[in-house]
């Protein structure tokens, strides 16, 4: 049983096709990394899968109960404290004690301290904002998480820390997820499977399963896998190409 099936998805902006015949299945408890050069329509595909955009054609079949999205920007409400921002994801009718404990659990999972919960987003650092956004996604108790290049703006150490959070809460079979990135090391580190999108959005080029579970992988193995993919695997030949669709 798959958590998410995308069948034959196609989309166009102002008459220009950005995605065509995309078929992608994500299994239960599986974290899939979607890679591809800039501007190939990765984000559009994620937005379609998350129901933020209606596709021109194709079918989406979701068999999970709830999903949540971690965006590239934290997208926090500036007028609400971190606590309220996380609480936004909870259903309305919870008792305040229940609410409090669920917010606290999500914050702990995203390595946020309780002191920080009463701060406003302007008072938080970039990493803390993004952690709040992750906590919000976790608080929703979604069983499917979408990540839209969530850590691009963070420095390497922080990014690693965030990836660990993702591995702990999505990559270990608890939840399914779709992770968009153009950092190959990030994809190899967090995902069970890497899917490569065509650089013009014309379907999926191919996929590679990564051995071991994400928690079991060490730095050496990740480094070697990335090296192998980038140097020896033709599937990844175009992944780091810069094409902002200027030529299209």
């Amino acid at each position: 049983m798959n958590a998410l099936n995308l069948t034959d998805i196609g989309h166009a902006f102002l008459g220009r096709t950005v995605l065509d015949r995309i078929t992608l299945d994500i299994g239960e408890g599986e974290l899939v990394a979607l890679v591809g050069p800039s501007g190939c329509g990765k984000s559009t595909l994620l937005h379609i899968a998350a129901g933020l955009i209606d596709p021109r054609q194709g079918r989406i079949n979701r068999s999970y109960a709830r999903h949540a999205v971690v965006f590239q920007e934290p997208r926090l409400l500036p007028w609400a404290t971190a606590r309220k921002n996380i609480g936004m994801a909870l259903p309305e009718g919870l008792s305040s004690r229940n609410r409090h404990s669920r917010i606290l659990a999500a914050a702990t999972a995203a390595a946020l301290e309780e002191d920080d919960l009463d701060k406003y987003p302007v008072q938080l650092s970039g990493g803390m904002k993004q952690r709040t956004a992750i906590a919000r996604a976790l608080a929703s108790e979604a069983d499917f998480l979408f990540f839209d290049e969530p850590f691009t703006a963070l420095d390497p150490a922080l990014r690693r820390h965030m990836q660990d959070i993702v591995i702990r809460h999505a990559g270990n079979g608890k939840r399914s997820g779709l992770f968009i990135t153009h950092d190959m090391a990030e994809a190899v580190r967090t995902a069970h499977r890497i899917v490569v999108l065509d650089r013009r959005g014309n379907g999926i080029l191919g996929e590679r399963y990564i051995p071991l579970r994400p928690v079991e992988r060490d730095d050496r193995m990740i480094f070697e896998t990335v090296q192998h993919f980038m140097k020896a695997d033709p599937l990844f030949a175009h992944v780091e190409e810069l094409d902002e669709r200027r030529s299209a």
Partner: peptide
């Protein structure tokens, strides 16, 4: 962007 975020939370 906040609209989309709220929409994504259902």
């Amino acid at each position: 962007l906040l609209d989309d975020m709220a929409l994504s939370l259902g």
